[in-house]
Design a protein around this nucleic acid. Structure first.
Lengths: 91, 91
DNA sequence: CGGCATCCTTCCGGATACTG
DNA sequence: CAGTATCCGGAAGGATGCCG
């Protein structure tokens, strides 16, 4: 979702950025977001076809919270990794 | 997580509030949060035993973002439901 | 290019029964 | 009370192949 903040992205672009994701999962995820009205799917029926994904108005209202969540995760990543290691090693 | 903001809660309390959750899932969830260092599990070995769950210092730093997310969800619940209904009905 | 259909394996998570 | 143990059905999701 936060990947779409800078504007529309094509399917293949998203696949490249979200490294390792299968086409199936990417499509399912995008379709879910589209169904929820957070992402807009715009098909241009040329050859080769072109599909742009962008945030809807409402989708953009979520971007702040998502960014904050990402920020939190980055800030506390080391702490959580440490906590897990300690938990797994003894108890 | 947001349930723990007001202070420690006992296992059975959480089970009552999160209605319908199985003991297995509640334990797994709490154990995951404990492993990540977000929740503290404090056992008092009396009869009957007593276990209190509370947020750690770091766990509390996440509460703001969680609250905002909940707020967003409540605010846009109707929109999303509508979007889904329209999506499922035609396309 | 941007998918969908299908197969197949994994594992999530509910139900139930039992314990310190 | 606060879990653990076990069984089990169904869903999640990777791999592969095909299509407009």
């Amino acid at each position: 979702m936060s990947l779409l903040l800078d504007g529309p992205r094509r399917y293949s672009d998203l696949r490249r950025v979200i490294d390792g994701i299968s086409p199936r999962m990417l499509t399912l995820t995008l379709r879910g977001l589209e169904r929820d009205g957070l992402v807009l799917r715009k098909v241009t029926p040329t050859t080769p076809p072109k599909v742009d994904y962008s945030l809807t108005q409402v989708g953009r209202t979520l971007s702040g919270q998502v960014s904050e969540l990402i920020g939190w995760a980055e800030q506390h990543y080391a702490y959580i990794s440490d906590s897990r290691r300690r938990y797994d090693e003894k108890g």
